[in-house]
Simulated assay, not measured.
Amino acid sequence: MIVRWQAEARHALRSFHSSAPARAGIISNIGKKPIVYPSIVSLEPTPTAVAVKGPLGVTSVPLMPYMQISEIAPNTLSVAVENPKERKQRSMWGLTRTLIQNAIVGMTEGFTTPVYLVGVGYRAALEEDPRGKGDGRSGQRLNMKLGFSHSVFVSVPDHIKIEVPQPTKIVLSCTDKHQLGLFAAQIRRWRPPEPYKGKGIIVGNERIRMKTVKKK
């Protein structure tokens, strides 16, 4: 009897809930947004990829078989999927739209990320790579002092442009946002920021959550 009363009470509480039951989303909030691109960029969609050509070069974004690309207006592209109720297609919907948008920005403006060296004696310099060009190398390398007993050398890939305006600041530029992030992570890996003094290599607007030293 008590169990039945508890079940009825729970049902009564649920019936007075004012919010409507959640519906399974069938639309990607990112994927449904149209892509507006400038006239200096040309897009050539095919069943397997979208070719993006701009002032800074040419790139392509691969497409899954269920992706649908159409031009709904001049310089306006629409991205859709065959069955938005499927979770995988819905997730790839927004991802594909973001990749195409990033490719357009990369071929027109490019991407730039600053890297900061925070620490006493930390500094960087750009110099010629003694190994020269080849195997994806640009012929330049970073010479960094990061508190070790030796210098740290990082070869610069040929698709990355790099500047060192200050000994503690490195500016990376690339037309591919993904490749830019990978190279920035490669530099950061040598001295990740530590949470007690904040020393290390900081990428972009990265925020370090500081910790207090435990006192005995």
Rank of each mutant, 00 (worst) to 15 (best):
I2F: 02
W5K: 06
W5R: 08
A7P: 01
A9I: 11
H11I: 11
S15N: 02
S19E: 06
R23I: 05
A24R: 06
K33H: 05
P34I: 04
S39M: 11
E44L: 13
P45N: 01
P47C: 12
T48C: 07
A49T: 08
V50Q: 05
V50R: 06
V52W: 03
V52I: 15
P55E: 15
L56I: 00
L56V: 02
T59M: 07
V61W: 13
M64E: 15
M64V: 08
P65K: 07
P65G: 05
Q68E: 07
I72V: 12
A73D: 13
N75D: 07
S78K: 13
V81M: 10
E82G: 00
E82W: 00
E82C: 03
K88W: 00
Q89V: 10
M92S: 12
M92I: 03
T96Q: 10
T98G: 05
T98N: 02
L99F: 14
Q101N: 10
N102V: 00
N102M: 12
A103N: 13
V105A: 13
G106V: 08
M107T: 15
G110P: 07
F111N: 04
P114Y: 03
P114S: 09
V115A: 05
L117Y: 10
L117F: 13
V120L: 02
V120S: 09
G121M: 08
A124N: 05
A124Q: 04
A125M: 00
E127L: 09
P130A: 04
P130H: 12
G132E: 00
K133A: 01
R137P: 00
S138C: 06
Q140D: 04
L142D: 01
S149A: 13
S155F: 07
D158P: 00
D158C: 00
I160T: 07
I162K: 07
V164F: 03
Q166L: 14
Q166A: 14
Q166M: 10
K169N: 04
K169C: 11
K169L: 15
I170A: 05
V171L: 15
L172T: 04
S173G: 08
D176M: 02
H178A: 13
Q179F: 04
L180E: 06
L180H: 05
F183T: 06
A185D: 11
Q186W: 01
I187G: 06
R188I: 03
R189Q: 14
P193T: 11
E194W: 08
K199E: 13
G204K: 12
G204Y: 14
N205K: 14
R207Q: 12
R207N: 07
I208C: 09
I208N: 09
K215C: 02
K216Y: 06
K216M: 00
